[in-house]
Simulated assay, not measured.
Amino acid sequence: MTAIDLSPPADPLGQALHFLRLSGTFYCHTSVTEPWGVTVPAMGDYLWFHVVTSGRCLLEVDGGDVQELGPGQLALVPHGRGHRLRSEPGVAVPDVTQLPHEYFDDRYAVLRHGGGGAPGTLVCGGVRFDHPAARELVALLPRLLHLDASRGTEAQWLQATLQLITAEATTLRPGGETVLTRLSDILVVQAIRAWIEADPAAQTGWLGALRDPKIGQAISLIHRHPAHPWTLASLAAEVAMSRSAFAARFTEIAGEPVMAYLTRWRMHLAREQLLDGAAVGELAGRLGYHSIAAFSRAFKRVHGMPPSAIRRQAGQPGSPSI
């Protein structure tokens, strides 16, 4: 049998960012005329983004956050929170899912809406990140993330990407929906990277643990080889720390004991693979468990339900219905 390479990557945080691959995505080119307003209802674990390419609007997120958006500005609304977009305060905000859309395919549509006044355009989308590392990262984002292309360290890349999006949204040439969706994917990932680099909140907790030279290596080893028979002693040895010092430091930085993190990580992987149709029996062995009973107990402890309940969810629709 070929030996497993347990050497950790040089950049554990970079490895986590590698898992920011979008799935379950829906994009909408929105042409509006004042006065206008829409409500985006709460939708599970979707992250919504809104790019204003012309005109202005107010973004109001459930929980009290309000942000004015103008050309060259981007907002992310993570965690599936409901929110409203409108041209000015007090304008009616009908449910966007009830408005007529022109569909190009099952992932891209055009919405035309408003009262016939001054025009504006937006590119909007709902995206999901299925990999557990990506979900862990997105869970740390604030209720509303706002980026302005005219200021900050992210100005150059944001301006360039938004200019391309604006050009495509303005003309809608053949194949434009493909270009818009891929540019939007890049924009969302870039925005999350910019937040990690700039926000003090991203320097602590799980992200802070990834940045730690020792703890980050241990987390990367768990991510890369979840089925390996890890113990507290073996992980400590891999990062050249004593068992007691490693255990204390991991808990202090990551916020939970290392073996609890290992179990939780395995169970997050199990959930995603169950939703993809994997059998419980094969997952138990694939994730380092010697019996289905032990695997099922760990799964229920983490997710609050047996693996069979997750299996029943497999095959259900994964995209927002607009």
Rank of each mutant, 00 (worst) to 15 (best):
H18F: 11
H18Q: 13
H18Y: 08
F19V: 01
L22K: 03
F26E: 09
F26I: 08
F26G: 14
Y27I: 01
Y27H: 15
T30Y: 02
S31F: 08
S31Q: 13
E34N: 07
P35Q: 04
P35N: 06
G37A: 12
V38G: 08
T39M: 13
A42Y: 00
W48R: 11
F49S: 02
S54C: 11
G55T: 01
R56D: 11
L58R: 14
E60P: 10
D62A: 14
Q67I: 04
E68C: 12
P71W: 05
G72V: 02
L74M: 10
L74T: 08
A75F: 00
L76M: 10
V77K: 06
P78Y: 01
G80K: 10
R84I: 15
L85G: 12
L85S: 10
S87Y: 06
E88P: 08
P89W: 07
V91W: 06
A92C: 05
A92I: 06
V93S: 08
D95F: 03
D95K: 04
D95I: 06
V96M: 10
H101I: 00
E102F: 02
Y103C: 01
F104N: 03
F104H: 04
D105C: 01
A109F: 00
A109G: 01
A109M: 00
L111Y: 03
R112H: 09
R112I: 06
H113A: 09
H113M: 12
G114C: 14
G114W: 12
G115V: 09
G115E: 09
G115P: 13
